[in-house]
Nucleic acid binder design. Structure first.
Lengths: 144, 144
DNA sequence: GTATCTGCAAAAATTTTGCAGGACG
DNA sequence: CGTCCTGCAAAATTTTTGCAGATAC
């Protein structure tokens, strides 16, 4: 999806951030791409047209944009690999502040119908609902 | 949930793996815990009762157990932080072999009813379906 | 006994941070 | 022009790897 620099500039400024060249290019690439890039991929894509850009700016900018909701992260934010020994069907609620993962059992969620279009992509092994939000513990901390 | 060493031993051997002390303890901890631990947390938990265990064994063992389906990973396996500039409601299919993430649009999935029990945990901001499986590209590679 | 597995140490890969100079508004 | 932002370099963190000795079966 093509986006204009005017839109991008406005989006960035609406969050009270400065619309620098680097931010515009990083946001443009992520917004227009469908590859769910990581920091290194963004860096390598921009490097040719912006030789002076540095990887740490890409990291800082991506997290900044994510924090302000201009982009999002796939899966859970800021995670190291986490493991789960619970093999029964269940779903997850994760708090975007503290990162705690809560298990969720619900028969209706277990029965989510997978859309037919999935056959064009591949073969399903598991389906899980991942709900992001703010846990009560963190909500209380903030209101204090 | 308590599990016996007999069960654990059997599970590990059923995959053609050797049931070593380290593997039994690692699997026992992950299977019985509800904290979705990362490698470091497993390591620190086992260290007192198993002073000689090393962190790299924990890493190797966790991925090995995950590969054989005795445990699973939360979210997507093996990931660096990935970013998504697509702000329209959508869901994800990820190939567990190549890691490619495909976007999935489906109105029915957008309307998943969040269970009431969520109120005991926290406040929802987003709900996404994350489907894991084997993409057609990788399926073809394997059959070759 | 033999193949598999572990611990050690070191390396690789990934991400974060402090600071001086530069750019935006 | 002042504040916020970037690039550089270095550090911190997280994860992987090679190898010799140990262990399961």
């Amino acid at each position: 999806m093509k986006v204009t620099y005017e839109e991008l500039t406005e989006n960035i400024k609406s969050k009270g951030l400065k619309a620098t060249q680097q931010r515009l290019e990083i946001l443009k690439f992520v917004a227009e791409s469908h590859i769910h890039p990581d920091a290194m991929e963004v860096f390598e894509k921009l490097k040719p047209s912006m030789p002076s850009i540095s990887l740490d700016t890409v990291y800082r900018t991506l997290w900044l944009l994510a924090k302000h909701g201009l982009i999002s992260t796939v899966g859970f934010p800021c995670e190291r690999a986490k493991f789960d020994g619970n093999l029964k069907p269940h779903h997850h609620f994760i708090c975007t502040i503290c990162g705690t993962i809560y298990d969720l059992y619900d028969e209706n969620l277990d029965k989510i119908p997978v859309p037919e279009s999935i056959n064009n992509i591949g073969e399903v092994t598991t389906t899980q609902i991942e709900i992001k939000g703010l846990c009560n513990k963190c909500r209380n901390t903030i209101t204090n």
